[in-house]
């Protein structure tokens, strides 16, 4: 399977934004897969950066339990609720395991826009997962979607910087969910790297020289043509 990501921080000088992503190897015994984490911490600046760091390290520490997304999210929620009263995070967890038919994904959203799945024929659907954002309420709930990516299918995780950016040729319109789906539909069957590059380019052109929000994109793709060992590269799982 392939992974590719793009991250565009808000503003040119800003080094740390509230969006983040990580790819971790799943604990052994889970079929050689990876966990993709993509999230958005509310707010900007130092306090948001500190919380981002905390969320990322906590999730990494909880990797041995990642079989159960809801349990991990609950533990993360408990860790945040006691120390950060005024900030929260929305995130997506996606466990990806290569299987004979492609890539098996377990996807769980916590207050975050559900990832989009583009099939090889161009059909775009939203992963059927939803849940409470993390760090606000004492109890959270979340449902996990099980998705099989066949060769040529891609799952795109994104932050709302992509959909909520304003601009366009006339300068005033929001990019929006529908436009993102349309953009993604055109990316059917492409390698992960090309999908994130294309989406990033379309969104950036939409924003133009105007102020933009943080944007993070991660694509998980079941390649159309499996590779042989001769071309294996370290950047792919």
């Amino acid at each position: 399977m392939e992974f590719a990501a793009r991250y565009q921080p808000a503003g040119d000088g800003e080094q740390v934004g509230g969006d983040f992503y990580d790819v971790h190897p799943l604990p052994s015994g889970t079929g050689g897969g990876s966990l993709v984490v993509l999230g958005d911490v509310c707010g900007k600046g130092m306090a948001a950066a500190v919380l981002t760091g905390k969320v990322r390290t906590t999730l990494q520490a909880l990797l041995p339990l990642i079989d159960d997304h809801l349990r991990v999210l609950t533990m993360l929620n408990n860790a945040l609720i006691n120390s950060h009263h005024d900030r929260f995070v929305t995130l997506v967890l996606a466990s990806a395991v290569p299987v004979a038919e492609g890539v098996r994904l377990s996807v769980t959203c916590a207050g975050h826009p559900p990832p989009l799945i583009v099939r090889r024929d161009g059909t775009v659907t939203m992963a059927e997962t939803g849940g409470t954002l993390i760090g606000m309420l004492p109890e959270i709930r979340a449902t996990t979607a099980e998705v099989l990516l066949a060769p040529g299918d891609t799952c795109l995780l994104y932050t709302d910087g992509a959909t909520e950016s304003h601009g366009g040729p006339l300068g005033r319109e929001m990019f929006g969910e529908e436009r993102l789906q349309r953009t993604l539909s055109a990316c059917a069957g492409m390698p992960a790297e090309a999908v994130v590059e294309h989406v990033h380019m379309v969104v950036s052109r939409w924003v133009g020289a105007r102020e933009h929000d943080d944007t993070a994109l991660v694509a998980v793709t079941a390649p159309l043509h499996p590779r042989n060992l001769r071309t294996e590269e370290t950047r792919d799982a």
Partner: peptide
């Protein structure tokens, strides 16, 4: 070619530089 195919081909061709380099 569409813009999208342009991206797909370019992404693959970019990897060909890695292949050559290795």
């Amino acid at each position: 070619l569409t813009v999208v195919q342009e991206h797909a081909i370019t992404a693959l061709n970019d990897r060909m530089i890695d292949v050559l380099s290795a």
